[in-house]
C-alpha cells in the first residue's frame, strides 16, 4: 500500500495556470522533507509533462504516489494521444505552434528531459484515446542516501 497519493487537475490550453500542479507537487514533497535533488528532478518531470498536456493534450491530472521504495509521478490527459511515441521521444521533434514557443516551450525537449530526470518512464497512448506518462523515481533505503 502506498504511503500517500495526491492528484492535481490540469486544464488544457490554460497557459496562465500551466505549471501550478507541478509546483503543488514540489511544495508537497518539500513539506515531506525529501532530498532537494530528488524534488528538483520530480518537479522538472512534472512541469514538462504538465506543459505537454496543456499544450497538446486535453484536460487531465498530475498525480504523485509515494511508496516505501519509490515515488511515482503520473500525467494523464484525455487529449488526441501520441501517434508515434518513438518519434515523440526524439530530442528536437515537436508538433508545437507559435503560441507554445512564445512561452518558451515546444522545442521538442520535453519528453527527452523527462526521460533524463526519471529512473523509468512509461508512456501509454493511442490516437484519440489520450496519454498516460508514468515516471518512477527510486528512493534510497531508509538511513541511506543517494
Amino acid at each position: 500500500m502506498s504511503k500517500l497519493k495526491k492528484s492535481f487537475h490540469v486544464k488544457a490550453r490554460d497557459f496562465i495556470r500551466a505549471g501550478e500542479a507541478s509546483i503543488n507537487v514540489q511544495n508537497l514533497l518539500k513539506s515531506m522533507n525529501f532530498d532537494p535533488r530528488l524534488i528538483r528532478r520530480v518537479a522538472i518531470c512534472g512541469y514538462e509533462g504538465e506543459m505537454n498536456a496543456v499544450m497538446h493534450g486535453g484536460d487531465g491530472n498530475l498525480s504523485v504516489e509515494v511508496d516505501t521504495d519509490r515515488l511515482t509521478l503520473e500525467i494523464s490527459d484525455e487529449g488526441p494521444g501520441i501517434e508515434d511515441i518513438e518519434l515523440a521521444m526524439q530530442a528536437g521533434y515537436s508538433t508545437a505552434n507559435d503560441d507554445h514557443r512564445e512561452m518558451g516551450f515546444g522545442a521538442g525537449m520535453g519528453l527527452p528531459n523527462m526521460k533524463k530526470n526519471s529512473d523509468q518512464i512509461h508512456i501509454e497512448s493511442q490516437k484519440n484515446l489520450g496519454t498516460v506518462v508514468r515516471m518512477i523515481f527510486f528512493l534510497p533505503e531508509e538511513g541511506k542516501t543517494n
Binding site: F15, A18, G19, E20, S22, R40, G104
Partner: peptide
C-alpha cells in the same frame, strides 16, 4: 531571457 511570461517564473521555481 527575452521572455516575460509567468512560465519564466515557474521555470525558475522548478529549476
Amino acid at each position: 531571457t527575452g521572455l516575460t511570461t509567468v512560465q519564466v517564473i515557474r521555470t525558475a521555481m522548478v529549476a
